[in-house]
Amino acid sequence: MKHPLPAYPSHLCVLRLSALGDVCNLVPTVRALQRQWPDTRITWIVGKGEYSLLAGLSGVEFIVFDKKTGLAGMRAIWRTLKDTRFDVLLHMQQSIRASILSLGLKADVRLGYDSARAKDHQTWFTNRQLAPHPRAHVLESFMDFARALGVEDTELDWNIPIPDDAELEAQSLISGRDALVMSPCANPRLRNFRNWTPEGYAAVIDHAHDAHGLTTFLTGGGSDQEQEMVNAIAHHCRVAQPVSVLGKTSLKGVLALIRQARVVIAPDSGPVHMANALNTPVIGLFATTNPDRAAPYCWQDYVINRYEAAARTYLKKPEQAPWGTRVRHPEAMKLIEADAVNAMLDRLLQDTETHKRPQ
């Protein structure tokens, strides 16, 4: 017998640890829950890096899990919450790590994905599942949790706080220039292959400077791979040298930089979703992941989409590929042409000359 869903929950737990883009896509669901039940406590168990992005989110109590701490970190969370019972656990992370973590949490209802969307045997760890939603965007999949609880007002709202010192940090970097923020590298996970070419990035930097007077700021972490990419991009630029802020800003500083930018260009990674959350015009570069599932939600019309071409070229049976299949081939992103990105940049800047988000 299923435990009934509460008409007015007193305490909800959101379990979503990673990643940066995903937690940005989840915030509108949290805001929808808050509008429905303004007095309901919301506890969000989140990853360490993701917390640094979301810190200060109004009405949310965060419990931070550092995946490097493993089982010891889980036990610490269990001890912290040993006297807490949630009305509903929103199990939004499809990983064995998160499911094991969920075992030590007390909850009447454990709501997870339906069998078609669930991965890593998540249905073993939940007692209620979402209604099916084939071919859903990631943001819509998160919002399905609110819908399952009876929320009807699903208007998109983020309001991710940026502290004053981060705004000042970004202002000092931009120094009054019209900024293109470019984040050239996605998370360097095994066989990720989401990064475009340095030659392509350089061609866009030159065009943005010549045609629109934009100064490009290259953002990212401090890894060797990212530094090599930035050096290669600078080498291929003909007329405009980008400003590297690699590893020089906090995540809140990157948020502020994106909010103050005229436009953002990046592959499928956190910054395109950060730009989407801040209403900054953004061009997503997609070939290895399906933008119908993972594009910056409010800017899908401005995505460079070569996913279907990549699937036809590099997947053995693309017509049978499950929803969300990634094209894990190092050549896939080379299907994106610099001329196509430049043309999209021209169009986006024209469309947003007097306002940002398309109406």
Results as ranks from 00 to 15, higher is better:
L53H: 03
L89F: 10
E61Q: 12
G104K: 01
T126R: 07
H121Q: 00
R35Y: 07
L101R: 00
D22V: 11
V46F: 03
T84D: 04
F62I: 08
Y51V: 10
L26P: 02
L54Q: 05
P134L: 14
D83G: 01
R79D: 15
Y51Q: 08
K119D: 02
V30M: 08
G70P: 00
L111W: 11
S58G: 07
K82D: 13
D83K: 10
L71M: 13
A32R: 07
A72M: 11
M74Y: 00
L101Y: 03
W78C: 08
D120G: 00
W37R: 10
L33R: 03
L101Q: 03
S18K: 07
L26Q: 05
G73V: 11
W44C: 04
T84R: 11
I100M: 10
F62H: 10
D87H: 06
L12G: 05
L57S: 04
I77Y: 13
L26N: 06
T80Y: 12
W44I: 03
L89A: 07
L81G: 05
A72P: 00
V109P: 07
I45F: 08
C13R: 02
E50T: 03
A19K: 04
A98T: 06
L103Q: 12
T69K: 14
K106S: 15
K119Y: 02
A107H: 05
A72E: 12
T123I: 15
W37M: 06
Q93M: 09
K67E: 15
V14T: 05
A131R: 13
A116F: 04
L54A: 11
M92I: 06
G70A: 04
R97S: 02
G47F: 03
R97P: 01
S52N: 11
Q93G: 01
A131K: 14
L81W: 09
D39K: 14
A19H: 09
C24R: 01
E61L: 03
G112T: 01
I96H: 02
D120E: 13
K67L: 15
G104A: 11
T80G: 04
V23Q: 03
M92K: 07
T80R: 15
R85N: 12
Q93V: 04
G59E: 12
D87Y: 12
P134K: 11
P38N: 04
G104V: 04
D120S: 04
G59F: 13
V88I: 13
V27T: 13
T43K: 09
Q36L: 02
C13Y: 10
I45H: 08
G104Y: 00
L15A: 06
W44A: 02
A32M: 10
Q34R: 14
